[in-house]
Design a protein around this nucleic acid. Structure first.
Lengths: 162, 162
DNA sequence: CCTAATCTCTTCTCTAAAGAAGAGGAATCC
DNA sequence: GGATTCCTCTTCTTTAGAGAAGAGATTAGG
């Protein structure tokens, strides 16, 4: 097993679409499983991981915005930012144009999380590097498009009526 | 925006590898975000989603095995299976060869979870369908290989010494 | 200017889920 | 066939995290 990354020029196509569906679902499960396991290994709760992903996708934002996107009221939001700040994942910066506001921005290198995710990153990097450039271009084209689709779907799950 | 799924025959390759890395990280964040949002919309806790993914990847197993893979002791494991069974996601089946054992198996259609994830599935299905067959083959080749990589990485996160 | 609205943070309370310890039934080994 | 081991489930206790309500500081509007 694990003789991956041979990557012949023409990977055999799946004949059966339902087989494709099962393959894709298992793939998503594995991605989620790995994300959860990594967060747990860092002592991060589910909400903390969620918020980090929100920040990763949405960029720096105020605690109010972060709380709204995470589905929390102001109390838990403050404590959430406290936890993330204490763990070194984010930083509070005063807003330049409104002194009531605070900007929560991700810190450059979340060391602990990066450390536990490093083995997977390395393996996936090798896997991606094993494809010829034109195939890798297809993969990254998909990644970029899928990111948008998932992000919008997640937003609609959060605010079903909007 | 959202003019996806045009998929020219040759998507432009990324010139900068660090750009690739950022694209990939954002993609993973979006996948995780969508998974969390879906679970939350169904009233599933983080552990419940984790366990469902374990079952999806590992197939039917005993509560003991599920608890071990989820990192729980026996008490919470029983309640976890109780919750999943009450919500209609899994079923307890007596083991045919050892009457002490119980097999936890996923139920065919977890209706609620499927319902909330359906919009994303549909959009991603359209996206995948928009690629010509040989490019789609590359994508599914990647999905299958990446599944193994993530699964093994998640296992090593759970049992760092093994 | 003085009032109203907005943003963050604090305190108190409450619920959901995890751990620890142990009971009961079933299989295995001598 | 009797003792030991194994698997699941139950009970009790504890902790982490969420909601509600309000205080303090700052901005906007009449």
């Amino acid at each position: 097993m694990s003789t991956h990354a041979q990557s012949q020029a023409q990977p055999q196509p799946h004949a059966d679409p339902s087989q494709e569906s099962a393959t894709y679902r298992r793939y998503l499960s594995a991605v989620l499983l790995h994300g959860h396991a990594g967060a747990k290994a860092c002592g991060l709760g589910a909400t903390d991981l969620y918020a980090l992903n929100v920040l990763d996708l949405g960029g720096p934002m105020t605690p109010g915005e972060l709380g709204a996107r995470t589905g929390l009221t102001t109390g838990p939001t403050t404590r959430l930012v406290d936890r993330l700040e204490a763990a070194g994942y984010v930083r509070r910066v005063p807003s330049p144009d409104d002194r009531r506001k605070v900007i929560v921005e991700p810190v450059g290198r979340p060391a602990e999380l990066d450390r536990v995710l490093a083995p997977a990153r390395r393996r996936l990097g090798e896997l991606l590097g094993s494809y010829p450039p034109e195939q890798r271009a297809v993969l990254f084209d998909y990644f970029a498009r899928a990111t948008e689709a998932y992000r919008e779907a997640a937003e609609q799950l959060r605010d079903p009526e909007e």
